[in-house]
């Protein structure tokens, strides 16, 4: 038997062994869920991991543009996704606070959207008279279009009163908010 054919036999034997081991593992694992096996194969270690994060960015004139802090941030290269805990993101205009966004959790997606979840608070304006505070539980912010969307209950508090609704689309460039259903406003005299 030539050397070449002996090598082929060895590869076949190795392949058969691998397939056999995988089959045994599959049939003996308690929940028979191939999903776990697949995920286990894909997840890799985080690319970076930060605690007590403090990040500032500046505009072309050197003025403060954004200032973000967070208890913890983890980034995974394979999905190009970052998971942030207790983020507070402040945006400025000519060094004056324009908007503050905070939540328990944030997911920064590769398409430049940020999903805020759990006690989401967005504050715009910087004096009591002209400030608007938005509260909800889930909010998807598109940082490119500068819009925010949710299907959850929202509460909007302003000096003139409080509005509650279900579902919202906000366009921060146009300073325009659409409330999608079940609207109830109370204006104080």
């Amino acid at each position: 038997m030539s050397k070449r054919s002996r090598q082929v036999q060895q590869w076949l034997a190795a392949a058969a062994t691998v397939i056999g081991v995988t089959a045994v593992a599959y049939f003996t694992s308690p929940d028979n869920n191939t999903g776990d096996l697949l995920v286990a194969a894909v997840i890799k270690a985080p690319a970076w991991y930060i605690t007590e994060a403090d990040h500032r960015s500046f505009d072309v004139d050197g003025k403060l543009d954004t200032h973000s802090i967070a208890d913890k941030a983890i980034h995974f290269d394979h999905s190009d996704t970052s998971f942030v805990t207790n983020p507070v993101i402040k945006s400025y205009e000519a060094s004056v606070t324009k908007q503050i966004a905070s939540a328990k959790n944030a997911t920064v997606n590769p398409d430049k959207t940020v999903l805020l979840t759990n006690n989401v608070v967005i504050t715009t304006g910087n004096t009591a008279a002209d400030s608007t505070v938005l509260n909800t539980e889930i909010l998807l912010i598109n940082t490119v279009l500068n819009t925010a969307d949710t299907k959850e209950a929202v509460t909007i508090t302003q000096a003139s009163g409080v509005t509650k609704a279900t579902g919202m689309h906000a366009d921060f460039n146009k300073e325009f908010i659409s409330l999608l259903s079940g609207v109830h406003s109370v204006y104080e005299p």
């Binding site: 608007t132 300073e175 325009f176 908010i177 409330l179 609207v183 109830h184 406003s185 109370v186 005299p189």
Partner: peptide
């Protein structure tokens, strides 16, 4: 009446912050 809060209920609403106009 004018000293009472105003309650407004509707299906939808739009708020134009720039012009301070709210449409129910």
């Amino acid at each position: 009446d004018r000293e009472q809060p105003i309650h407004i209920r509707s299906d939808r609403a739009e708020r134009d912050d720039k012009n301070a106009i709210t449409t129910y």
